Deep mutational scan, measured.
Amino acid sequence: RTVITEEFKVPDKMVGFIIGRGGEQISRIQAESGCKIQIASESSGIPERPCVLTGTPESIEQAKRLLGQIVDRCRN
């Protein structure tokens, strides 16, 4: 099985929602997708915060879908 790493950007102001209380939301996304997610600790003042996704191509797609759902929910 091929493990790859891909960068994905999330809106900086939504990082708190993505991580969740005590990290529970990000842990759930990682468990559900099987993908490791590392969010940069600093956005360096830019509106997007880079995340590094590591896993199989399928797990990365699943993680991006779950992250996208959270971002959409927070935008509305």
Rank of each mutant, 00 (worst) to 15 (best):
T2Y: 09
T2E: 14
T2K: 14
V3D: 06
V3G: 04
I4V: 11
I4S: 05
I4C: 07
I4K: 12
I4Y: 14
I4L: 08
T5F: 04
T5M: 05
T5H: 09
E6W: 02
E6I: 06
E6G: 04
E6M: 07
E7P: 05
E7L: 11
E7D: 13
F8V: 09
F8K: 02
F8Y: 13
F8M: 08
F8G: 02
K9I: 07
K9W: 10
K9N: 06
K9D: 05
K9F: 12
K9M: 13
V10R: 00
V10L: 12
V10M: 06
P11A: 03
P11V: 02
D12K: 09
K13T: 09
K13W: 05
K13C: 10
M14D: 06
M14I: 02
M14Q: 03
M14G: 02
M14N: 07
M14L: 10
V15Y: 05
V15N: 02
V15W: 03
V15G: 05
G16T: 09
G16W: 03
G16C: 08
F17K: 15
F17E: 15
F17I: 10
F17A: 13
F17Y: 13
I18Y: 03
I18P: 04
I18V: 08
I19T: 11
G20H: 03
G20P: 02
G20M: 02
G20K: 05
G20F: 02
R21H: 12
R21K: 13
R21C: 08
R21N: 14
R21Y: 04
R21W: 04
G22N: 14
G22V: 04
G22F: 07
G23L: 04
G23C: 04
G23P: 03
G23Y: 04
E24K: 15
Q25R: 15
Q25T: 05
Q25F: 07
Q25I: 06
I26D: 01
I26K: 03
S27K: 15
S27H: 06
R28K: 11
R28D: 08
R28T: 09
R28Y: 04
I29T: 03
I29Q: 01
I29L: 12
Q30W: 02
Q30M: 07
Q30R: 10
Q30H: 03
Q30S: 10
Q30C: 08
A31T: 11
A31F: 06
E32I: 11
E32V: 09
S33A: 05
S33P: 01
S33M: 01
G34I: 01
G34R: 08
G34K: 12
G34T: 03
G34P: 01
C35Y: 01
C35V: 05
C35I: 02
C35T: 04
C35H: 01
K36M: 09
K36D: 14
K36V: 07
K36N: 08
K36H: 14
K36F: 03
I37N: 01
I37R: 01
I37S: 01
I37D: 01
I37H: 00
Q38Y: 04
Q38A: 11
Q38D: 07
Q38G: 07
I39R: 01
I39Q: 02
I39K: 01
I39V: 12
I39M: 09
A40Q: 15
A40L: 11
A40H: 12
A40C: 13
A40F: 15
S41H: 07
S41R: 15
S41L: 09
S41I: 07
S41F: 04
E42N: 11
E42A: 11
E42D: 13
E42K: 11
E42V: 11
S43C: 15
S43M: 08
S43T: 11
S43L: 07
S44I: 09
S44F: 10
S44Y: 08
S44L: 13
S44R: 11
S44D: 14
S44T: 13
G45I: 05
G45P: 09
G45E: 10
I46N: 15
I46H: 15
I46K: 14
I46S: 13
P47A: 12
P47T: 09
P47E: 12
E48L: 09
E48Q: 06
E48D: 14
E48Y: 10
E48H: 06
E48I: 04
E48P: 03
E48T: 06
R49V: 10
R49C: 07
P50A: 11
P50M: 11
P50Q: 10
P50L: 11
C51W: 05
C51I: 08
C51D: 01
C51H: 02
V52Q: 15
V52F: 06
V52W: 10
L53A: 02
L53M: 05
L53K: 00
L53G: 00
L53R: 00
T54D: 04
T54P: 00
G55T: 00
G55I: 00
G55Q: 00
G55C: 00
G55D: 00
G55Y: 00
T56G: 03
T56S: 13
P57Y: 05
P57S: 06
P57N: 07
P57R: 13
P57T: 14
P57M: 06
E58R: 08
E58Y: 05
E58P: 06
S59V: 03
S59W: 00
S59A: 11
S59P: 00
I60M: 02
I60F: 01
I60Q: 00
I60S: 00
I60L: 06
I60N: 04
E61P: 01
E61W: 06
E61M: 09
E61N: 09
E61R: 11
Q62A: 13
Q62I: 11
A63P: 00
A63F: 02
A63S: 02
A63W: 00
K64A: 02
K64Q: 04
K64T: 03
R65Y: 11
R65W: 09
R65I: 15
L66H: 05
L66Y: 08
L66W: 04
L67C: 02
L67A: 00
L67T: 01
L67E: 01
G68L: 11
G68E: 12
Q69T: 09
Q69W: 03
Q69E: 15
Q69S: 14
Q69N: 10
Q69F: 04
I70D: 03
I70S: 10
V71I: 13
V71S: 06
V71D: 05
D72V: 07
D72I: 03
D72A: 10
D72Y: 06
R73S: 11
R73M: 10
R73T: 15
R73N: 15
R73P: 14
C74G: 15
C74E: 11
C74H: 15
C74D: 09
R75G: 15
N76D: 15
N76T: 10
N76F: 15
N76A: 15
N76L: 12
N76C: 09
